[in-house]
Amino acid sequence: MLTAVKNQTRVCLLSLKYNIMREMVNKVTFLMNIIFMMLNNACILIQWFILFRLREEIGGYTMREIMMLWGLTAASFGLSHILFARVFSLPELIVSGKLDSYLVQPKNVLLGVLTSATAVSAIGDFLYGVALLLFCGLAVGGFLLALLLIVTGTVILTAFALLFGSLAFWFVRVEILGNQMVMGIVSFATYPDGIFQGISRFLLYFIIPVGMAVYHPVHILAEFDAGRLFTVLGYACLLSTAAVAVFYRGLRRYSSSSLMEARM
């Protein structure tokens, strides 16, 4: 069992390494992608400088919380696209029958698929996010907590994309929907939750998981709250378990009597 885990980890890391090596074939492009993505993200801070000239706090956030919000979102989005970029194009693999090559390998199918690509610009997102969190003036403990929350954010975002992407086992045309949902999460996750009230607030906390991925974590960083932390951890576990279950359910369908048009 332990060796199996070790071997699986070895394959995943090698896969990540090779993915990055692929992107590094052209070093200039590689670095430009990363640096420009950081600049690109940094530009958005202008928006907040302007808004904070108008009011001192927005939706209960000051500049510091906005930096935490952006830091967590960018880092989670980045980490998810570095490690599991393929989850965001999963429907395409399913529909065009490209899971076959993972099925003939003696390794975990899901991990094999997810780690088979990396988005370079995501490295820029991740570094930017971490840098922003460093500038927030968190104590060492706070920063470690932030790292944990990046991980939970990554898990939630990836699991959500996996859940939506796996629907392609049943419905062919979910690809765009899934992408729109992910972009929707990111859009909401870059504005303070305080400006949303009523139904939209409910939706953000319970249906599309922006609240769990980013809003709760920002509040935890601003003022530690064990209850919130456990909620986030529990939710991350629950969502990923559900997503993995749906994926394997779909994979069984892929292997058994699926419709022919989705195959070959």
């Binding site: 071997n7 394959v11 090698l14 090779y18 090596m21 076959d100 390998q105 003696p106």
Partner: peptide, 27 residues
């Protein structure tokens, strides 16, 4: 398995690196 139309190699890597990857897959 070899599926003629589908490539399983990483094209930016050398055959050597590719073989190493498959070696890892098969422990």
């Amino acid at each position: 398995t070899v599926f003629g139309q589908k490539e399983q190699l990483w094209t930016h890597l050398t055959p050597y690196d590719n073989f190493r990857f498959f070696g890892a897959i098969y422990d």
